[in-house]
């Protein structure tokens, strides 16, 4: 059996973190939580993640920057990055992909669709 996939949830909205955490645990993943950009950067330097769920708008370091830095790290070469953002403009989405995202899902999102997508991404990764 492969190791349990490790998910990093990055968002400054506690209620959203709460729902995402419930979902991930429910599906049997390991979950780490970062409540802002700085915490997220610390987390990705310490351990590799299979999937990072990344908010864009945060008080300190924004999601784009976190993604860009993540792509520089050798330890995160297999990491899948999914942006979950209320910013839904075409330009914002493009910016997310430019920063190195695997997927950009606008908020509000469907939890079922999100889970299907995550499972697919983890499957190809394995």
């Amino acid at each position: 059996m492969p190791t349990t996939p490790h998910i990093l949830i990055v968002d400054d909205e506690p209620n959203i973190v709460m729902s995402l955490e419930f979902l991930m645990r429910k599906n049997g993943y390991r979950v780490s939580i970062a409540r802002n950009g700085t915490e997220a950067l610390e987390a990705i330097k310490q351990s590799p993640f299979d999937v990072v769920l990344l908010d864009v708008m945060m008080p300190d370091v924004d999601g784009y920057e976190v993604c860009r830095q993540l792509r520089q790290l050798p330890g995160q070469s297999h990491t899948r990055v999914i942006f979950l953002s209320a910013k839904s403009k075409e330009a914002d989405i493009q910016k997310g992909y430019d920063a190195g995202a695997d997927l950009y899902i606008p908020k509000p999102f469907s939890t079922r669709q999100l889970m299907t997508t995550i499972k697919e991404l983890i499957g190809t990764n394995v």
Binding site: E13, N15, I16, S19, A86, K107, F109
Partner: peptide
């Protein structure tokens, strides 16, 4: 969208 996201997800 932010509160809406929580409401929908929950």
């Amino acid at each position: 969208r932010t509160p809406l996201t929580s409401i929908r997800a929950l």
